[in-house]
Design a protein around this nucleic acid. Structure first.
Length: 516
RNA sequence: GGCCCCGUCGUCUAGAGGCCUAGGACACAGCCCUUUCACGGCUGCGACACGGGUUCGAAUCCCGUCGGGGUCACCA
């Protein structure tokens, strides 16, 4: 039975790189009919774990990454919160000491620092001398009588090498002599990450450890403990990290300002900010940030688009397949096809996936996704004018790239007298062209005579109108558009007129004529 | 600095000695379609980090150089 896990710290947000790691774990487990566990790394006794965890769990659920055991769902191998396992950890520390794989150490931080600096001065690599290592209980008592506080360190081998196979990197071999005697239990009795990690993976029967490359260097020390304890070794796969746009540094939430210098990144961010502001969301960098998954949900991206993009960030099936359903992902995914080198996060490419998925979305679902934005922006009330929204969504077609884009068509819901006008376009299409006003007035009269006000009839009407006037369709279309929408761009004009209806069209045209 | 990892178009990638005058996708540019904006179609731009080997033949194998990154905590 394959069992994988993802172990987030409760930080209050779900990082895009973390999602990729979780996704690969999830895919691997599901592909092999195994289980995926969501365990919480809160050894740092973070207060407020619940509120810091909620956005993370919410993010996973939104993306459709479900877990069989762990936070909130429980399971037979709990507790799944490290903060609740201290007695268990200390028991394992005791076992390690008993087996001679770890020892009590009484060096003070100053003494350690002095040793390290002496080594640096002589330009030799430093390994702890074990001078304050307690060989036995008597020695422990003696050190403690001096008022020293003890930590527990691993008694690492200083000869030979640690060997293991990594599913992505192949055979690994690291000299033991490059490994320090790592502390596993602090002076205050709490334990460190590496120890907790080994114990949890064992307790939860994890078979495959799929994690970020930064943990590669933790592997030998963990393996040392696993072997000393007689635990079965899990299999390993160290993923390359997700890099910044246009650089090979690790993607970080804190560097938004720098990323915004990237034109693509900036464009996507600006678009999202506009939507967020229209629906009254805060856009501070620590919550509203393209590095955080929440960002995408808030402005109306589709979870399947994000998943598909992330799947291809560091993994590929072949030279052409890009779109994957969940089932196809499960069928195709293998660790061996994960890339070795870091892949940078390209928010523009993510947008391209979003556009493709959005285009493929059935009309009904688009309406579902789009409506909350209109509600939050205060443009529609209760009851929601579903038919109008449906007409707009249909007419907007592929212009709706994210659900929040519906706010581009806010002017359908604005009262006629409050319609904002783009002055530049207004000048260009109505005030400047000679005869434009007169033509619009004539057109208004023609529209007033219309008996049918659907798009097809309106097209006929306007076609014959321009014919009798001896002008081109283009001569009236632009003036009409700016008159009824206040803007220079939008979807088909006939659809626009039809959705507004005769009365509102005429009222808007009248207002435009007055103001020209 | 020690140890470890990585290095194909701007970006994601295909590539396991001849299928490679290196393929696809995103981005970008131009053209076409078009009532605007999108969509779509076509075309273009554009990479094997460098230097040595091995071989009839190397993006692919070996060595070195350079470059980038990770890690060296009583953080996770």
């Amino acid at each position: 039975m394959v069992r994988t896990r993802f172990a987030p710290s409760p930080t209050g947000y779900l990082h895009i790189g973390g999602v990729r790691t979780a996704l690969f774990n999830w895919l691997f487990a599901r592909k092999h009919g195994g289980q995926f566990i969501l365990r919480i790394d809160d050894t740092d006794e973070a207060r407020n774990v619940d509120s810091a965890l909620a956005p993370i769990l919410h993010g996973f659920r939104w993306l459709g990454i479900d877990w069989d055991e762990g936070a909130e769902v429980g399971g037979p191998h709990g507790p799944y919160y490290q903060s609740q396992k201290l007695p268990r950890y200390r028991e394992v520390v005791r076992q390690l000491v008993q087996r001679g794989a770890a020892y009590w150490d009484y060096a003070t931080p100053e003494e350690l620092k002095a040793e390290r600096e002496a080594a640096e001065k002589e330009k030799r690599s430093w390994l702890y001398s074990r001078r304050w290592m307690a060989q036995n209980e008597t020695a422990r008592r003696r050190f403690e009588a001096e008022g020293r506080k003890g930590v527990v360190r691993l008694l690492m081998p200083r000869e030979g090498a640690c060997e293991f196979v990594d599913h992505i990197r192949g055979q690994m071999k690291i000299d033991w002599a490059s490994e320090q005697d790592h502390v596993i239990q602090r002076a205050d009795g709490t334990v460190l990450y590496n120890l907790a990690n080994v114990v949890d993976d064992f307790d939860m029967k994890i078979t495959h450890v799929i994690r970020a490359q930064e943990h590669l260097s933790n592997t030998p020390r963990q393996l040392f403990m696993i072997d000393a304890l007689g635990y079965p070794r899990p299999e390993y796969a160290h993923l390359p990290f997700v890099a910044e746009p246009g650089s090979s540094n690790k993607l970080s939430k804190r560097k938004l300002d720098a990323y915004l210098k990237n034109a693509d990144f900036k464009k996507v961010h600006e678009r999202a900010v506009a939507i967020a502001q229209a629906i009254g969301l805060k856009t501070a960098a620590d919550t509203f940030n393209p590095v955080i998954v929440d960002f995408y949900e808030q402005v109306g991206y589709l979870p399947q688009a994000i998943i598909n993009y992330l799947l291809l960030l560091g993994w590929s099936l072949d030279d052409k397949t890009e779109i994957f359903t969940r089932q196809q992902m499960l069928d195709a995914f293998t660790l061996e096809r994960v890339n070795k080198s870091p892949a940078s996060f390209d928010v523009k490419k993510l947008s391209a996936f979003q556009e493709r998925y959005m285009m493929a979305l059935p009309l009904e679902e688009k309406i579902e996704r789009v409506t909350p934005f209109l509600v939050k922006a205060g443009l529609v009330g209760d009851p929601v004018p579903r038919d109008t929204i449906a007409q707009i969504v249909a007419a907007a077609g592929e212009r709706l790239k994210i659900a929040g884009d519906i706010l581009d068509y806010a002017d359908f819901f604005t009262p006629d007298e409050a319609l904002p006008l783009d002055e530049k376009i207004f000048d260009k299409r109505l005030r400047k062209p000679p005869g434009a006003r007169e033509l619009l007035r004539a057109c208004r009269d023609a529209l007033a005579e219309a008996t049918a006000f659907d798009a097809a009839s309106l097209e006929q009407l306007l076609q014959s109108f321009v014919q009798t006037k001896g002008v081109e369709l283009g001569d009236i279309v632009h003036a009409l558009r700016v008159a009824v929408t206040g803007k220079g761009v939008g979807f088909g004009l006939f659809e626009t007129l039809a959705i507004l209806g005769k009365e509102r069209c005429l009222s808007r045209i009248d207002r435009a004529l007055q103001r020209s």
